[in-house]
Design a protein around this nucleic acid. Sequence first.
DNA 1: GTGAAAGCGCTAACAC
DNA 2: GTGTTAGCGCTTTCAC
Lengths: 342, 342
Amino acid sequence: MATGSRKATLHDVAKCAHVSVASVSNYLNDYPYMRPSTRERIQKAIDELGYVTNQQARNLRSGRTGLISLSLPDLNQIYFAELAEETIKQAREYGYRVIIESTGNDRQREIDSARAMASNMTDGLILSPTQLRTEDIPELEGDYPLVMLGERLFGAPAPHVVMANETAAQAATEHLLKAGCRTIAVVGGTLDDSVPSSRSMRTKGYVNALVDRGQSVRSELIRETGEWTSAEGAQAVRNMYAQGIRPDGIFALNDLLAMGVISQLREMRVRIPESVRVVGFDDIDEAKYTIPSLTTVDPGRATIAKLAIESILSQLKNGARAPRSRIDVAFQLKYRASSPQV
Amino acid sequence: MATGSRKATLHDVAKCAHVSVASVSNYLNDYPYMRPSTRERIQKAIDELGYVTNQQARNLRSGRTGLISLSLPDLNQIYFAELAEETIKQAREYGYRVIIESTGNDRQREIDSARAMASNMTDGLILSPTQLRTEDIPELEGDYPLVMLGERLFGAPAPHVVMANETAAQAATEHLLKAGCRTIAVVGGTLDDSVPSSRSMRTKGYVNALVDRGQSVRSELIRETGEWTSAEGAQAVRNMYAQGIRPDGIFALNDLLAMGVISQLREMRVRIPESVRVVGFDDIDEAKYTIPSLTTVDPGRATIAKLAIESILSQLKNGARAPRSRIDVAFQLKYRASSPQV
DNA sequence: GTGAAAGCGCTAACAC
DNA sequence: GTGTTAGCGCTTTCAC
């Protein structure tokens, strides 16, 4: 490596190796038809000058950046942090890097994520909105690669990768039913389905499972909560018991709620799973470490990330936005100690 | 917005507005000396053509990208996810976006993060390594803006923003002492300080506090753990009690451990804080929601992110890497129910 | 105040 | 096989 005063360019390398810039460029891009001796001279010059390709110039020329935008509500929510981690990992497999936008559940920032795509800074956008409304769909028009995530804006003009909220919740509930539970509470649930959301979809799955078994849906077993935190999960259990409700199964709509549920039940000396089975949703890392460890729904985070990245790259290859479509991701029930498989 | 066949360029706008490209460029960059009528014509043309500046071209010309790399071990670790969130937020304040590299505690990937800087893709690097060794320091030479984070590689040729692991741990322990605790266990601690780490620094702080009070350090109160998970925290408490050790204060070296500690104590009907006070470290979001809520050390995550970003930007402005330096960030004890202020 | 022109460093035709 | 050249879309002197 040279005592670089200024950064070496293709031009410098060409001069140093006594070849043309085209040859150097070819060399860098693995052009096959090239005399070995030329190759060597070029490589030597590169080493000597400590040359590194300037990505920006390459980007301008090629129209690609090797960057993908991932727009999420909030990395403080474990689910999204873990999704981001998976997405970064997947992108790296293909030589891509990820810019993360955190929108903080702000509609304008969600729109801005889309608008930023017009400036060519990244090769594609993976967007997980929570506030966008149907009227915002025009903001998503464009020819850049786009993949939608989450429960909103199914009308968006792009592929939409969705987790199986409803069927997974149904399977979780069926598991409890099959294990003999007859009084299954759903913590975090709601019967309000005016706005599609994880909350409403998962509750619907729960209801479906009961109905399929000919069981009645008891509204006192549907425990609404505010935020999905462990404190709310614990509170929900306390309230339920205070009202004399004694479930033998609890389906918490995410793992944090489930952690609160477990902690409260243990506090109350309720045995898990002997007296009450507990099932969560998301399969966050901590679910393995609760006591007892948490049976939960793995919504296929890794698959979601993989499909999203692959769709972006295939749209990029085709040079066109893929049409609106829906890609359902398989879920998996992870059986752990809080409700073993029967 | 026009029925853009192809994306409009500066050139197109210039032609449409009957001015030169220079004027359009000036307009876009808020050049003050410009006839209002010209301004208007240009703006009209921009609207008409739906022109958006091409960032890549601007980047090539200006040598800047508006991107900062943040290289972290793992977004699945809540602390890092929350740090990333803060960093993204701070960067946005200055009009910057963040590329997140997740190195998975892999030394080669940590090195790659640094090497990637040579290609001009981002304007600076915030690096939080866990595996880099002193011999890797040469990899960090360069004139690009760099900020180091964490407990390693203090010899690196760049500013190093560090949290007050030792003094914060000392303060946390002093708080317990002041509250009357006489048998304070440290969960996650270690007396091995051969490798500098959060673990060893925080333990050292704990020891300092005891020594300052003239108390002896009892090795059976230093409870080593494997990973810092809540399961390990709970296990540590069980082991301790099984050995007949009855602490009246527990300092857990991070919040996940503390959550396990709390959950196990409640299980055992030990009253918090009456019988045992519990203090954690990190102030993750969940710490507010444990039951009882967790007294913990806020290591100044927001400040760390802010200082890191600001240092990157100031290095950028100065056109040179800032010299090696150490920037200590103030911590704050967050008093909550698990150990109220005395 | 505004315009002409020279690149930033690279890639991709196309010529030889 | 290798070289020449024309830009990618923008910013920035420097004339006028």
